[in-house]
């Protein structure tokens, strides 16, 4: 049963040097109570996808008509701003990358959580405050009765990220979008925050979209995974299947590039040569072709579509062609 289904999401930015196609036809599927990991390099469109789901794209960005974001029976791409405001922070919440700057410096953390509660629930100021203290306790902040009146600058990065999570959980959302929630934190704190997210997810039975560039985190935390490259999903499916047998060369290369514990300095790290192409001029065929070690002529000419594979879906001519060829082969044989 899917909670959120994104179809053909396209988010473009009109810049002086042209139209930047940051997200260009993304399909995603988040199952109720499950965690979807979205992985990809910087500039692959992960964060823009997340912001687009909540329609938080500001000028000069725009979500193109024909994009669909189905959530609880509504197409969020088509509803009014007012309806969206009722969904944001209530049914879908978001935790951002930068805890240092994502909290408002002039309001106490308590008031920022209370605002989130009172925007969606009819409660008295005192009830909301008690709920805020409860939430701070839930995310593991010591002496929450005291911390509720603290300002963000009086807290460490890890504490602030906990506050952000408390704020996101204020109205017990069905879906939590966490956009690289640990990137800006120390390694030990990273593990704590991820563990916290995992506990809360299980306790509150919410679905999570976890955006990360860390495949290790995906393996630990997620049920499903979508691999993004150059504004597109190139492969998606269950974590188990895709980690066992990646169907897209990009996924395969990503998995190979993870440094392993026990590697010596003599062993070269596996890197993917080249860089992500510019969102202003995506290449014509498969966007990964220029960096792909399996690329053949056809890859540069025509973009592959997502097709069903053994592990889920992948957009690669090796897979698409394989099925086509075998079908054709079967036909000539007959």
């Amino acid at each position: 049963m899917s909670l959120l289904r994104v179809e053909n999401l396209r988010t473009y930015f009109d810049t002086r040097s042209g139209v930047m196609k940051a997200v260009d036809g993304v399909d995603l599927d988040v199952r109720e109570g499950k965690t979807l990991g979205v992985v990809g390099e910087s500039g692959s469109g992960k964060s823009v996808t997340a912001l687009s789901i909540m329609r938080l794209i500001e000028r000069p960005g725009r979500i193109l008509p024909g994009s669909h974001i189905y959530f609880e029976g509504k197409d969020l791409a088509a509803v009014s701003e007012r309806e969206l405001e009722a969904v944001r922070g209530n049914r879908i919440s978001m935790v951002f990358q930068e805890p240092m700057t994502s909290l408002n410096p002039v309001h106490t953390v308590g008031n920022q959580i209370i605002e989130g509660i009172r925007l969606h629930r009819r409660t008295s100021a005192r009830q909301a405050r008690e709920r805020a203290i409860e939430l701070l306790e839930l995310v593991g902040i010591p002496s929450p009765e005291r911390r509720v009146d603290a300002f963000p600058h009086q807290m460490s990065g890890g504490m602030r990220q906990r506050v952000m999570i408390a704020m996101a959980l204020a109205c017990e959302p069905k879906l939590l979008i966490a956009d690289e929630p640990t990137t800006a934190l120390d390694v030990t704190i990273q593990a704590q925050i991820l563990e916290l997210l995992r506990q809360l997810r299980d306790r509150l039975a919410m679905a999570v979209i976890l955006i990360t560039h860390d495949l290790g985190v995906v393996a630990e935390m997620c049920d499903d995974v979508a691999v993004m490259y150059a504004g597109e999903v190139v492969e998606r499916g269950s974590v188990d299947a895709i980690f066992r047998s990646p169907q897209h060369p990009y996924t395969e290369a990503l998995l190979r590039s993870i440094p392993l514990l026990g590697m010596t300095q003599d062993e070269p790290l596996n890197v993917i040569p080249g860089v992500v192409p510019s969102a202003l001029h995506w290449p014509g065929g498969c966007r990964f072709a220029a960096r792909c070690s399996y690329a053949f002529q056809h890859c540069h000419r025509q973009p592959p579509a997502l097709v069903a594979t053994r592990s889920g879906f992948a957009a690669c001519w090796l897979r698409g062609n394989a099925t086509e060829r075998s079908q054709r082969g079967a036909a000539t044989d007959a």
Binding site: L56, A86, G89, N90, F96, T101, L103, G116, M164
Partner: peptide, 14 residues
């Protein structure tokens, strides 16, 4: 500032 996006994500009006 990122906290402006946070506020929007909470469901606060423009």
């Amino acid at each position: 500032e990122p906290f402006m996006a946070t506020a929007r994500a909470k469901g606060a009006g423009r």
